[in-house]
Design a protein around this nucleic acid. Sequence first.
DNA 1: AGTTTCGGCGCC
DNA 2: AAAGGGCGCCGAAACT
Length: 561
Amino acid sequence: MADRWALAPAEDGGVDVAPLGPDGLPAAAVRREADAAEAVRSRPGVTRWVWRSTAEVHPRLLATGVRVERCYDVEAAETLLLGHEGRYGQPRSAAAALARLRGGPVPPDPPQRPAEPGAQSPLFEPRGAHVPLADLLTVYAEQQRRTEATAHPDRIRLLLAAESAGMLVAAEMNRAGVPWRADVHRAVLHDLLGERYAGGEPRRLAELADEVSAAFGRRVRPDLPADVLKAFAQAGIKVSSTRRWELESLDHPAVKPLIEYKKLYRIMVAHGWSWLQDWVRDGRFRPEFLAGGTVTGRWVTNGGGALQIPKVIRRAVVADPGWRLVVADADQMEPRVLAAISRDPGLMEVAGRETDLYQSVSDRAFSGDRAQAKLAVLGAVYGQTSGDGLKNLAALRRRFPTAVAYVDEAARAGEEGRLVRTWLGRTCPPAARTTDDAVEEAGIPLAEEEPDAARQWIPGYASTDARARGRFTRNFVVQGSAADWTLLLLAALRQALTELAAELVFFQHDEVIVHCPEEEAETVAGVIREAAELAGRLTFGPTPVRFPFTTAVVECYADAK
DNA sequence: AGTTTCGGCGCC
DNA sequence: AAAGGGCGCCGAAACT
């Protein structure tokens, strides 16, 4: 039996701790201790810490170098369990869970804190009310009961453990930061945008704006869509937006400089000099990674746009001297996950090899046209409803009927308003009904004059448009099950890296970056591959599907592809 | 003046 | 070639 302890910060700045028995209840009296880090450090035999919120506790442990093997995050678990029970949108704090148990008024969750440019990752984040240890354990015991009441308690247990592991990894990555060379970043910006005039736009942007204006024969601001649309209209060209793919089809001399301007302008505003000022300190880019930030289980970042770093800017991600970046990408993750969850015999067979899956699919169903095969697979996963995608989808269905039927069924379930789950049981929010219905169902008393407060927590993706919702749930089962797998991957990787100096510094859906001493790099690359296969077995059980990674050992992120 | 929404595009 | 899923971010536009 694993050695489980619970921990809750006390109001006097100390911490309450208690050992837990197999039933999840305290096996001995609660102890008040002065310091959370010391309380953990002095109990190296504990294999899992149960606490309210990893974001609240873990950073202060990390600050003193204390390592936690595993945790159970009660609020992360509450979010997942509520979703599984079809009660998405109800307040998910431990305090709210306790209030529901006791039948008292349920406190709303605190509002999401916006990004704080320049701030370190949040250290002593109070998000959620203080909950005494005894109350926390009441909630925990009830969560265990709810877990056992599900159709697949083993999967839910794994999901809760994986999500908690994700919380640990996120906190550790937030502390580490991404190695970032501000000088290289500035050089890239200078190359792309030219020198900056005081108070004005950079030289290259100014030149392109002049070219656009010259082409139209009047002054046009290329960064203002309304101005651009008007200019095209005056030139006798009808265009409904200034999206790039639409502009590209136009025959007009302004198009080329306009597209170039928009590309560079985008880089300047999203990852330019002010971004550098805000988010990079002491050689590290410090975004705040939020595990479980989306309904599919994908992570998000709060601030810094860390999951959208443009390719050209990756030049600035450089390992420390004597260190390397191990950049690892999962190969064709989504179709491999679809093979694992649908158990389609043909797709499992091609996913059972480590070779390019899209090529294998195209050999079997698309006469060797890899691009078409890839479009067909992604179209099936994303719910493509028109164009070549439909024709390709038919070809895919003939050869891999069980796989396509799996996502079709997910789409149908979504359209009919049924719950849809990932492999481990993360659950898609139910379809939106009217605001009033949803409010009543959630049991939240709401003043008549506050309809906006209700709409606020009805997620936008819970669309009332049945077809849009079908596309969402179709994608949800694949994207979400992939996220299940990546959480287990991160947990396994974190565990395996403890013996090394290496640190996980970046994670983006199907890609990880480990920063490590040069001599550890090959070991790390192997560790990632092993973690991926272990995660595959843990997540999906016995399956022939393989989860290969492409790994590159580089000094600079931009050289990984 | 402050807050929310929109348009467009970066990443997967 | 065409426009399907998930996000975050920015400035401008559209509001209170």
